[in-house]
Amino acid sequence: MNKINFTQTGGVPFTNNVAAEFEKAYSIFNAYGALAGDKTIISGCIENGDEVSEGFIYLNNELFYFEGGLKSDNIFLSEINIDKVFEDQTTKTLIKIRTLKFGNAIENVWDWSDFYRIKTIKELQEDLKDLQEKQVITEAKLAIFEPGYTVFPFFRPVNEVPPGFAPVWNIAGRTIVGLDPNDTDFDAIGKLFGSKTHQLTVDEMPRHRHGTNGNTAPNDSGVGNFANGSGSEVNTKLYSDYEGLDMPHNNVQPSIVANYIEWVGLN
Rank of each mutant, 00 (worst) to 15 (best):
M1V: 12
N2E: 14
K3V: 08
I4C: 02
N5Q: 08
T7S: 14
Q8R: 06
G10Q: 06
G11F: 03
V12L: 13
N16E: 12
N16K: 14
A19C: 10
A20R: 10
E23P: 03
Y26T: 14
S27K: 15
A36L: 14
I42P: 04
I42D: 06
S43V: 07
I46M: 09
I46E: 11
E51Y: 02
V52P: 01
S53P: 06
E54P: 00
N60A: 05
F64H: 05
E67K: 08
G68A: 02
G69T: 05
L70V: 13
S72R: 13
D73A: 09
D73Q: 12
N74R: 04
I75Q: 01
E79W: 00
I82D: 03
D83C: 02
K84D: 01
E87C: 10
T91S: 06
F115K: 10
F115P: 04
F115N: 08
F115I: 02
K119R: 04
E123M: 03
L124N: 09
Q125K: 10
E126H: 13
L128I: 05
D130H: 12
Q135I: 00
V136M: 07
I137P: 00
T138I: 05
E146K: 08
V151K: 03
V151E: 03
F152Q: 03
R156F: 10
P157W: 15
E160F: 06
V161D: 07
V161W: 01
V161Q: 01
W169K: 11
N170C: 13
A172Y: 07
I176K: 12
G178S: 10
L179Q: 01
P181W: 15
D183W: 15
T184P: 00
F186S: 12
D187F: 02
D187V: 02
G190P: 02
K191A: 02
L192H: 00
K196W: 12
T197E: 07
Q199E: 10
T201M: 02
D203E: 14
H210F: 15
G211K: 01
G214M: 01
A217M: 12
N219P: 03
S221E: 08
S221I: 08
G224E: 13
N225T: 06
N228L: 00
N228F: 07
S232C: 09
V234D: 07
Y239F: 06
S240Y: 04
D241G: 07
L245T: 13
D246W: 12
D246N: 14
D246Y: 03
V252H: 01
V252K: 14
Q253A: 13
A258Q: 04
Y260S: 01
Y260R: 01
G265F: 11
